[in-house]
Write a protein that binds this DNA or RNA. Sequence first.
RNA 1: CGGGACGUAGCGCAGCUUGGUAGCGCGCAGCGUUCGGGACGCUGAGGUCGCGGGUUCAAAUCCCGCCGUCCCGACCA
Length: 568
Amino acid sequence: MRLSRSFVPTLREDPADADIASHRLLLRAGFIRPVMAGVYTSLPFGLRTMRKIEGIVREEMDAAGAIELRMPIVLPAEPWKATGRYELYGDVMFKLADRHDRGLVLGPTQEEVVAALAAGDLPSYRDLPKNVYQVEWKYRDEFRPRFGLLRAREFLMKDAYSIDRDEDGMRESYRVMYEAYVRVFERLGLEVAIVEADPGQIGGGVNHEFMARATVGEDLFVECENGDYLADTEAARPMAPEPAGEGTERLVEVDTPGTPTIEALATFLQVEPSTTLKCVLFDVAGRSTAVLVPGDREVSVNKLEKLVFPAKVRPFEDADFGARGFAKGYVGPQGFGDDTTIIADHLVRGGRDWVTGSNIVDRHVTGANVGRDFRVDRWEDVVEFREGDPCPVDGGALRIGRSIVVGHIYQLHTHYSAPLGARFVDEDGTEKPFQMGSYGIGITRILAAAVEQSHDEAGIVWRKAVAPFEVVVIVATRDDEASVDEAERVYAELLERGVDVAIDDRAETAGVKFADADLIGYPVQVVVGKRGVAAGTVDVKVRATGERTQARLAEAAQAAEQALAAAP
RNA sequence: CGGGACGUAGCGCAGCUUGGUAGCGCGCAGCGUUCGGGACGCUGAGGUCGCGGGUUCAAAUCCCGCCGUCCCGACCA
């Protein structure tokens, strides 16, 4: 490829609207251009890199026995209504209508399509298992597109779907995909943490996220300082504390005027917030539900929703307190009737003689103890994770890491096949819904994640597996015919040897070409100039290390290949 | 969706407070000089100042509305 004939518009300055490294560098290096918020044109180098990532993904999918096909982007809305995702996704789905005013959607993912396909064309258990995949553009009208390609409204995704006869088969398909994913990220050179993730409100099946570590990721994960525990922040459950034992104080009511918040209460009584008991009220399917956590902690609504699924959780509004006989700001669990469910976090076991509400405005109680003064209906993990919490495996401190979710795999069971009536006839002659799994990899997101994990002051540092070109031959003295000829010769020889090589033959000064080569991030640069040619040498620079070596002109191609072989 | 900032030439920005001929750097074009780490000189092209309305003799500048982009956040007793 000749840079003089390609289209790689590099920018000398940082674009004003790009804050994070991948967005900034992909714009500057001429890989992408914005069209509107969250939607980008892929310029030649961006497209080429994307294709290399796709290539690796395809190879591993094929090797794992998945079959490539291609599904449409424009889809009828009905199946999405049948599975409930039309409402669940809500405004995140791009919705449109055709000339007959039929509802259409742009595919955000395609479980509905696969289920329908299987229903029609995989009628028998003899047809199973199958795993189909595609690499196609996905559309999600994100709440807030940001960070360039990391959260875009249009993005390229590899999505695979396993279709099995029974749960064992589904789990086996899942295992095979899991392992294929491990290989994909290894080959891409991405450092990923594999985290068992939040089962989500829907389905609730086993699922894992492949999280590329980054300094800017939107997605947080939790890991133990000793490296033996990893989890999604929503799934992280700290080690339960040792029970604190029997209380020693008696229950006493105290006047605490103007203390509806934990902070005000703790200040007024001169106690630590952690010695107070916070009692948060929710409406769960019409029933009052009190959640108890230590005063210095927060209730995880997400965890609560999962606990009571499929019932809906609604936090109390001001009107609910009065209407149901609770004193807002002074709620305590003593004396709650059977019409209120009391859920306590495990952390509450670790305390005693609590300070909590008295259910009378401007009054609290001290010395409240579980069992004697109030009951607990369920002990659960409902507290919001906090950094430093003890690891459930070894008690070590849990830390939050930032990451970019580059892959996500799910065991779906019959979550989509059942509502869509996607069934096959099993060996015993009965109809059964397919057992499905789905497996996504964000191709464009990987493009950005790779830059996040591998860049420096000068620009991107691509690994050779995904670089737009592995080697660039730089013509450093464009006016010198001998240099140009030698550069062309080295370029031709590298091409002949099957190296993925570009030649910078533009009418630019050497400085511009060097800066661009570093910015673009070719793993290996071969510099051919007058000085070297006169001495019979070329320079070979490895981008990742910055190391430069001289090679004999006649052996330039071999030297470049060797440098490439040694490069990451 | 709430909050904040920004919108002036392809890109990065100044000008706005105090209204009066639209500027700088980079890039781009021509000529000449240069030629191994973002060269230099001269000449030149390029702008409905986001859009609409208002105030004014006069608006990039003041006022109102809208649109767009980016950032932060999204219920806690």
